[in-house]
């Protein structure tokens, strides 16, 4: 790790100011960033720690939405009664992230800001059509994820919360990479007020919606219908852990399992 300067922000405004002043990076849970820094793969000169900002924490129900503060730790989502009552699929998803240590440190805001192609949270945010609330604006999920490790966030823009519409039904099924336990393929399915949504993580360079599955499930919300869909493998990842063809196959298998798990 290279030397860096650490700033403890007390408010979102304070953090924004520090980021624009130093050109540094925001530190959320640090579960990706700190590991990269330890390997000397990232060398920010300044880190702005968001963990001391009260308004970024907490989970609350706002009408037909569930709002999760950006600095809420995965472990807090797992144990939240509000989450379990409104969207139990989110609690289940959070429980499948990393290990206990990662869940105790990692945050929802950090995860989606990083937009790792194999992360779990992007599937839920896109699958539910959530809104990403930032220090500057509100961004629809469909506009937020731009590509591998790329988002719509501008320099110095800080995610403050994610607002999830409470769906009729939702579930997430993840096929873990045997080594990393990140999603080799993870599929989030939901019946929302805005229609049937299916988001896929792990399979491609960034989370994406599977239109074919959405159409099939809109007609017939069943595991069999999801499984019958053939996903094209043209843009999917191929690596040590699975070919594009395998990932394409798993998208339908996981979609069907997710549908089977909804209730």
């Amino acid at each position: 790790m290279y030397a860096f300067e650490l700033h403890h922000a007390k408010s979102v405004a304070d953090a924004s100011a520090a980021l624009s002043r130093t050109g540094g990076k925001a530190l959320a849970g640090g579960q990706s960033l700190v590991a990269a820094m330890k390997l000397r793969l990232a060398q920010p000169g300044h880190l702005v720690d968001l963990s001391g900002i009260p308004e970024l924490k907490g989970i609350r129900r706002e009408g037909d939405h569930l709002v999760i503060g950006a600095m809420t730790r995965h472990a807090d989502v797992v144990s939240s009664e509000a989450v379990k009552g409104a969207i139990p699929a989110l609690a289940a998803l959070a429980e499948g992230i990393g290990d206990r240590q990662v869940r105790n440190m990692g945050t929802i805001g950090g995860s989606i800001a990083n937009n790792d192609p194999a992360a779990d949270w992007p599937a839920a945010v896109l699958g539910l059509g959530a809104t990403v609330v930032t220090s500057k604006r509100k961004i629809a999920a469909d506009e937020f994820f731009k590509g591998m490790f790329e988002t719509a966030l501008a320099e110095g823009e800080i995610i403050t919360a994610v607002s999830f519409p409470v769906p009729k039904k939702a579930a997430y099924a993840k096929f873990p990479n045997p080594a990393s336990r990140f999603a080799l393929v993870g599929v989030f399915v939901a019946q929302t007020g805005a229609g049937t949504r299916v988001a896929v993580t792990g399979a491609a360079s960034s989370v994406f919606r599977s239109k074919a599955h959405e159409d099939a499930l809109a007609k017939d919300w069943s595991a069999a219908a999801a499984k019958a869909v053939r996903t094209p493998d043209a843009n999917l990842n191929s690596d040590l852990h699975g070919t594009a063809a395998y990932r394409a196959h798993l998208v339908s298998v996981m979609a069907s399992r997710a549908v089977g798990a909804t209730h």
């Binding site: 080594a179 990140f182 040590l240």
Partner: peptide
């Protein structure tokens, strides 16, 4: 070495 971390080497 492609399996140089636990991200790719499965224990």
């Amino acid at each position: 070495l492609l399996t140089g971390t636990y991200m790719d080497y499965a224990m």
